[in-house]
Design a protein around this nucleic acid. Sequence first.
RNA 1: GGGGGAGUGUCCCGAGUGGCAAAGGGGGGGGACUGUAAAUCCCCUGGCUUCGCCUUCGUAGGUUCGAGUCCUACCUCCCCCA
Length: 416
Amino acid sequence: MSTYKSDFLNTLSTRGYIHQCSDATGLDALAAKGDVTAYIGFDCTAKSLHVGSLVQIMLLHWAQELGQKSIALMGGGTTRVGDPSGRDESRKLLTLEDIEDNKRGIQQVFAKFLRFGSGPRDALMIDNAEWLTKLNYLDMLRDVGRHFSVNRMLAMDSVKLRLEREHELSFIEFNYMVLQAYDFAELARRYGCNLQMGGSDQWGNIINGIDLGRRMGTHQLFALTTPLITLASGAKMGKTSSGAVWLNADMLSPYGYWQFWRNTEDADVGRFLKLFTALPLAEIAKLEALGGSEINIAKKMLADKATAMLHGQKAAEDASETARKTFEEGESAAGLPTLELDLSAGVGVLQAAVLAGFASSNGEARRSIQGGAIRVNDVAVSDEKMQLTAASLNSEGVIKLSMGKKKHVLIKPKQG
RNA sequence: GGGGGAGUGUCCCGAGUGGCAAAGGGGGGGGACUGUAAAUCCCCUGGCUUCGCCUUCGUAGGUUCGAGUCCUACCUCCCCCA
């Protein structure tokens, strides 16, 4: 595998980040000199990125670690249009306020993975709204639009999919790829950017950027895409029992994040250690070699390292300790999510389960109890009319309410 | 503009003779087995003040003891002709 001259491509290749590359040899030569300026675009479609974008973030991380320059591009402009790639229905258009809001949420994460600044090796964060919002339609058509062939655009996967399935593709979405291509060319001109990376579904869009760059007279541009990360079982990655795996701590706690990695399937551990931690390959090889239940050591390492990268060492240790107490000692560890309730008049278990987020209605909570899923202080609840009162508090002054093996909430009495 | 077809449980796909809270999948949740894994098996998957009541089949009316199912109008989407 180690056929590259540069640490950059060698590392990316051996850790499993490379799916396609437009000109590996040419890129390798640049990387060997530390002359790569790589960017990845992130659209602001939600208040936080989720693990689905983590491979991309890691890519920027490695680029910087391995002597290149990284640019995190916020899609403040492109999000106003909406990327049709990989979707068979239009996204609903977001309001400008939502986009700004989302952008603020997304930006927080990058500081954990990149060093920003103004030095030559410092990473940059740029918003494509900076130039996209200033474009003039006629100028745009004459300067950029003339380089695009509609014939070719129609052949692009993102477009073809919609056309073949006879699903609507609006004109605004059709323009997304033009804007993304323009971004690449603009970054090349402004910042000497020469590499765009992204998920495999972005290949077409990136290639368009390379073509546009050539026609507009920029230096040679390169494309590098990552494989689509799926679980060994074939499912898409990134869901937990309680929804998407968000990167922002206010949307998924470090403990929840740690749990996500801890629950990785056996067959994925090695691959994920390479992709989502910076652990040296030699160490990963040792962990991968563990068999049987010992593989859990590797899973804990994965959870520790991945959580530490995102939320910091301290948060990772806390999460790890909370999990150890909860699962290995069966205690009600203080690090579990808590819920304050006024217990003076008693609170029904059904209501408590709903408030804890275990069920979305009393009926659902009731069914869970009938299925034996709900436990109070580790004792299965059989009576759905059970009341939680001050008498239910355990020796630590809390009530441990659980659903299934993995969902636990500590209920604390509300003070005055 | 003319002709034809379709919209089903707000996660998705999809059956549905006038008696239907509505078949079957997928997805999701839980249980068993395990190792907080996978695979497998079992249960659940409209709401509520739950031996009952309420709300659901594009929208609004109508026929009927009773309508997802029949009739009328409207909306949306698709196909053919122009």
